[in-house]
């Protein structure tokens, strides 16, 4: 195993573990979500992370929260990516439409993201789908800027000019040259977007805007905080979801590290 590939394997290992947990949670815990035990138990071999105020097993909650956290994070980062690609492409044109979308992008950079999201989610109510829609409605900005830069850069590249001179159609140029060259941007923006979407989701859920029927890790911390885990010394209830969020974001970061290194090697 080459040292260069270490981030790839590490990132994939963590991510695949989380995906497996999300797909078959029952494999990782012997309890179901609603099994009741005496409340506020400490860590033991029966309850890895103890039980909460209602007597649910915290470790089981964590396992079952994986799917929702991953779903919201990944879906909203895919949506942000699509939006960013579309708006980035539109804003790269030199026409009037292009300048409108460029200023729209610049404007979104200046909006206070968190507060605007809080206001919107109070008005729109909290469900997983509103959360996904809202996070992606504000998550496309970075991607759009990068995509625009790349397309503008490509348009003046010699090999694209060459295509035009040789009389290739626009479709051919776009499919075989633009898309190929945008691939690494798409991968790196997806990975970066996944991290930031997961962070945004967990912050909003911590503030109580999460879907109460599909508790994510952020919602778990919110519950733990509100139900007085601090005073009960149930620190694991507060910290375990946080570590899970950290591990998930790190796995995406490792993957992006690998692709970044690979890209650097190609460019050299």
């Amino acid at each position: 195993m080459k040292r260069r590939n270490l981030p790839l394997y590490l990132g994939l290992a963590i991510l695949l573990l989380f995906v497996l947990i999300a797909l078959v949670p029952s494999l990782f815990t012997s309890y179901s979500r609603k099994d009741m035990f005496p409340p506020w138990q400490g860590m033991s071999s029966e309850h890895f992370l103890g039980t909460n105020n209602l007597g649910y097993d915290i470790y089981t909650e964590l396992i079952y929260g994986t799917g929702d956290t991953l779903f919201i994070g990944v879906t909203s980062s895919i949506l942000s990516l699509v939006l960013g690609l579309a708006i980035g492409t539109l804003s790269s044109s030199e026409s009037f439409v292009g300048s409108i979308f460029t200023s729209l992008t610049n404007m979104f950079v200046y909006l206070p993201k968190l507060v605007t999201l809080i206001v919107l989610s109070t008005f729109l109510g909290s469900s997983s789908f509103t959360l996904i829609a809202l996070i992606s409605a504000f998550g496309w900005v970075g991607t759009s800027r990068v995509v625009k830069g790349k397309i503008v850069h490509l348009s003046s590249a010699p090999f694209i000019e060459n295509c035009t001179l040789l009389g290739y159609g626009k479709l051919h140029t776009v499919l075989h040259h633009y898309v190929r060259n945008l691939q690494d941007v798409i991968v790196s923006r997806f990975l970066a977007g996944a991290t930031s979407c997961i962070m945004m989701e967990s912050t909003l859920s911590f503030l109580g805007f999460g879907d109460l029927y599909h508790p994510t890790w952020g919602t778990m911390v919110n519950y733990a905080w509100k139900r007085g885990a601090m005073l009960r010394h149930a620190y694991n209830y507060l910290l375990a979801p946080g570590f899970a969020i950290m591990a998930l974001s790190l796995s995406f970061y490792f993957l992006s590290l690998f692709f970044e290194k690979k890209q650097e090697e190609i460019n050299l």
């Binding site: 962070m199 912050t203 952020g218 507060l238 910290l239």
Partner: peptide, 21 residues
Amino acid sequence: VILNTVPTFMIGIVLLLFFAF
């Protein structure tokens, strides 16, 4: 980079647990 993967509220909770409690 590692610190960047920790949500703000988790940093706060950890500091609060350790230094205040």
